[in-house]
Design a binder for these strands. Structure first.
Lengths: 237, 237
DNA sequence: GAGCACCATCTTCCATGCAAGCATGAATGT
DNA sequence: ACATTCATGCTTGCATGGAAGATGGTGCTC
């Protein structure tokens, strides 16, 4: 984890919202957990994190409350802060949430007037194209980014801030899994085809098909992934 | 809002988890917002709430951070704490989240082995019976409680803590709306019939039907409710 | 009378201090 | 040598004080 950026001390950029130390601590810890700087099972003290971030314990303590509410950490009353690991059961839960929310999002987009459907399809197809191109170049990083962007666009198209928030929370929780599975190079072709089917259903204005396509896409990915994790004996990540 | 219960000072009940002042403040404010002791638009200061709860500003401040993350309040940087009101657009968002989650939950329950399906159906039908009985007695309060219990049981049957949490959050947000609409005495018969259809689909082990029934139930209720709110000119609650 | 500047006050934000609890390890007794 | 007990240090929980900022009122000026 790096020292907090000095941007907040410099000239305010006008439109920028002034950030509080609590927000800084929250984002720093969230990022650190996402990229495994704080690996699951790691135990830190508020004081230590506060030192690293160059602030006192208070903002760290308050940021931890948010992170705990979102399920990223667990605070052990007089022992420290524990970065939580994901069990296979957590993965089951997360997948079902994603299946539910993304399915409904796709359905909602497919029910929009044609002009808005077309705009959404253009964005979605753009990311799918990029996935196909990245696959040809064998660029897994780019493939993963485009895939993420497709699913983010799908949720944003539904224009529902609560859905966005829910998805972001489970994405934070499962980000490490995603980084791991990307390297397993599974289902790349299938994903592209399934993305096309989702977009196609939206283009034709068929909500039922769109919902089903989005759901089947996630179900297929889940059923491909969970046995792999079991085979490698990964009980927590 | 009442003074915090003195239970924490008395002898610990063994199995009870020791509660922190932050948790006390969180629950007290959450309850106060739910039952409109803190009405939307109301603006309070941390100091005032702390005085009422008999604690210092710190636990209140930290509880507010959680409430803000869950969308129940908004903290205006140097003005105070604002209890947020729900706009029609918020209702649209909430309904879509509930449609997505409950639909998937019903689908999951209907896919369980028969023994577990039967157990769930028994619970669900029990609550539906109670709704029908309450309707005959013209007991709206009991009707609402049984209806809530049905939907809670539906989510719990899916055995997904994240879904439970999501539903609880949106329930907190829309609890005031629910109290209001209960008195409009709309769709009581329809709800009972729709609940029976959901349970029936689960009993027969038909996930697709169960999901559809759960979704249509919420969609019908929404389409009945939103025009009413518009007619009464309710722009926020 | 109207408008503007300034000050007092109230707010959140954050740092710091103190208290309480638990774990670890050392020291002592057997 | 081993077990038991006690003390010390580290942890979070909470209170309090100071700082920064915004807002509303008041007084002064035109």
């Amino acid at each position: 984890m790096r020292r907090v950026s000095p941007a907040r001390d410099s000239v305010d950029e006008g439109t920028e919202r002034k950030s509080s130390l609590v927000d800084d601590a929250y984002e720093a810890m969230r990022t650190a957990i996402r990229d495994s700087t704080f690996a699951p099972g790691y135990q830190a003290s508020e004081q230590e994190i506060a030192n690293r971030l160059g602030m006192s314990r208070t903002p760290v303590h308050e940021a931890v409350i948010r992170l705990q509410a979102e399920g990223l950490v667990e605070v052990l009353p007089r022992k420290g802060i524990l970065i939580v690991a994901l069990s296979p059961d957590d993965l089951r839960e997360i997948y079902d949430v994603v299946i539910a929310i993304e399915g409904r999002a796709a359905e909602l987009i497919a029910a929009l007037p044609q002009a808005e459907r077309t705009a959404n399809v253009k964005i979605l197809d753009g990311w799918t194209d990029e996935m196909a191109a990245a696959e040809k170049r064998n660029d897994l990083q780019a493939w993963g980014n485009a895939d993420s962007a497709f699913h983010t666009a799908l949720i944003q198209g539904a224009n529902n801030s609560r859905m966005s928030r829910i998805i972001q929370t489970v994405n934070d929780q499962s980000h490490r899994l995603r980084m791991l599975t990307l390297n397993l190079r599974r289902g790349l072709d299938a994903s592209v085809a399934e993305h096309r089917r989702i977009a196609q259903s939206i283009r034709f204005g068929n909500p039922a098909d769109a919902a089903d396509a989005a759901r089947q896409h996630r179900i297929r990915a889940r059923d491909e992934l969970l046995p792999l994790l079991a085979r490698y004996g990964l009980k927590h990540l």
